[in-house]
Design a protein around this nucleic acid. Sequence first.
RNA 1: GCGGUCAUAGCUCAGUGGUAGAGCACUACACUGACACUCUAGGGGACGGUGGUUCAAACCCACCUGAUCGCACCA
Length: 867
Amino acid sequence: MSELAKAYDPNPISDKHYENWLQSGHFHAEPSSEKPPFSIVIPPPNVTGILTLGHVLNNSIQDILCRRARMQGKEVLWLPGTDHAGLATQTKVEESLIDAGTSKDEIGREAFLEKTWEWTEKHGGIIIEQLKKIGCSCDWEREKFTMDDDYYDAVSEAFVKLYDRGHIYRGYRMVNWCPSTQSAISDEEVIATPQNSKLYTMKYEVVEEPGTFLEIATTRPETIMGDTAVAVHPEDDRYKHMVGKHCRRPFPQADIPIIADDHLDMEFGTGVLKVTPAHDNADFEIGQRHDLPVIDILHPDGSVNCPDVPELNGLDRFKARNKAAEMLEEMGLLIKTEKYKNNVGFSERGQVPIEPRLSEQWFLKYPKTQETLSAVLNGHVKFHPERWTKVYQHWLDNIQDWCISRQIWWGHRIPVWYKNDEIKCQKNSPGEGWTQDPDALDTWFSSWLWAYQTMDAECQKKFYPTSVLVTGPDIIFLWVARMIFAGLEFEPSGTSEMKQNIPFKDVYFTGLIRDNRGRKLSKSLGNSPDPLDLVTKYGADGLRFGLLRVAPQGLDIRYDEKQIEEGRNFCNKLWNACRFRQMQGDIDPNANPYDHQLSSYAHLILKQTDELIEKVDKHYDNYQFNQVAGTIYGFVWTQFCSRYLEAAKADFNDESSATRAGTLATFDFVLSRILRLLHPFCPFITEELWLDLNYGEDTIQFAKWPQRLETNWDEAATTQAEKIFDALDQSRSLRGEFGISAKQKVKFSLKLSGELASGDQAILESLMSAESLELITEAPARTPMVLTTLGDLFLPLDGVVDIEKEIARIEKALIKVDEDITRENKKLSNTKMIENAPAEKVAEWRQVLADAEERKAKLTEQLSHLK
RNA sequence: GCGGUCAUAGCUCAGUGGUAGAGCACUACACUGACACUCUAGGGGACGGUGGUUCAAACCCACCUGAUCGCACCA
């Protein structure tokens, strides 16, 4: 047993223990184990990503669940891995190529993929090392990557299966096009973003009625060249008569029909809509209904493709917008330009507005939507907090086909082959002359197999379905729902039973971390701290505990570094409590307090420990980690350190104390439970203290999870201890009122209401740091007094007492007592209340009233003595 | 527009029907033999508003206000 340092220095300890844990294989999950299984698959971070506070929160929670499960005797699999993040990684590699003076198209597909693998190997795995720094107990032997050969094959096979079952099709349809990455993206990756735009009102001349103009409002004059009609509402009296006629598109000049369509809102703008079927979802549908031609006037990069209008041709779409407005102005067709706020869809990755664009893409028509919904509604999968089920249901009720093809190279290539007019869907080339589809699959198309494809057959048998998924609600559609689909569709259990195929039983949604002004953490705002800096400053345990303590279930977190500092301070507090214990010597790992004579406060802390275990278990089971942390924090700091430990000093300083051995045994008993309860949150410091204090031979990681004692408490003793602490608090207040410092030795007199054992008296005397504590039967005159549950406590001040001050103090106390009496009287004089309230409540109120009246009598008497 | 969430001390938040809580911040005190990453004391709240249910509402219900997040959007 090494002597503990005066201050807790987390980092050397953490590194030492993590190294040991890795070498001992403690994180290994054994599929052949007899123990009940507990499993979690990590939400795979981007392979080239770096750790954020969000990751810390998310992975700490998973670690907490896993570590507790191990202590509860379960066989735990926490399966780690990373995601290839197709678009995100490809973008980074492309940028590096441009910096090097080349480009992906220049070097070609094969060389590009080689570069990307190099990049992945160079930058990949950083986040894995960072996760180790914060203590994550993943089974690293099983680390998976979505581009591993076997995983790659599985993704292709999944595609082929769905194709064969008729769920996947190719179609020329309107998709969300990201001009920045030049790829289609799914609806879920489009973020509606409020924009300050302009609404242009222009006029088109009616061909059949020269001199008559239709006024049209638009936010996108740069798409005029793609207009193939102008639409009005069929019941709009202003325009009804125009339907069937034509109006003149200004550039390139052409006559386009005026049509009637129900889609229009007569209230909006002028009630006339320019119809651009190639560049707007709604317009496309109108075009379909009216058989309008589709004119695509944009290049894939978002620049204008319209040689007939040389002024605009080749311009970027936003420049073209301004230019088109200028042209309208010059032609005298622009009536007005107004400021206008609207929502524009942005590409999540590319950070630019998306273009609705027609293109040939692969789509998945989701199978088993009913089952996917009912898995959650029936409670096979439980969401925490539950309200997310509503969001989930809403999405499923309105589900659209999933565009799964991406015009990128880094990812799982679509397993479809073409030769002349033939198409074959299979993993490998059908032979000579066949060319593979150039596109890759949406990254999420690989992620959705993650819950089982990460496991080998043996592990699947033991650990699938997994126990719980911990993730953010922002990917409820992108990932969570789709994993449920995958489980139900591909039936990894080998049976068709729903319960065996759903990928997880519980889903815990974490909150979002925001800064102290409520903004999201982001690199561009510079408000995103580096978790590793925080680890350096406060230790991994401090970071974990501090963060978890302020992370309420299902709500966003206002992050402040102060909170992490508090976490570190808490660890230091615990450290020093253990250091204090160590100074007393003689640690018995199997100490049983009940073998010894116990002081009243030892009885109290034992009972409180039992209550602690109950509360902590309850909060754990409800996934209320902030409550777990808060409960342990309060217990350690207040009950254990400020009360029990301070009281114990009296015993430890007195060699002859009859309760000394019992106090020591109680100390070890309680502390060893605190360490175990805290281990999931603070794995490093608890391991260190566990070993230093010799509470177990080996590691704390598999120490038995504390159980309640459920013994018959010595109620008399615990009540007495509470009274003693009340008397202590009151004595301190009294000192404070009269400006007597805490260490200044003073005499106290106590007129007991009940009994006080001599041992307890000695402890109280010591805690009050009193010169003496005299038991008296007569109240002394002109002496400051305070009422306690133990009795009336007097502070004789040998004539130096400020009587006016004491009178004021007592009068203030009387006001408070009168308020209590009034309140209780009001309740008790209400006959309805007496009749309807439970008898025990009424009795309670009567007791409160009686107590208050007794206090009032005493205070009144004291006041009369003073005056 | 539809749906969700939140509103309690200066700040961050606990508190599921019966006397308003914690941490931080603030004020004062103490370099007390575990800890200054500390100790002790103190001040500070008509629990967003209005109604309703109830013997009893911070808590349950309705509406309102404000903030925030999804989803769908009108060009």
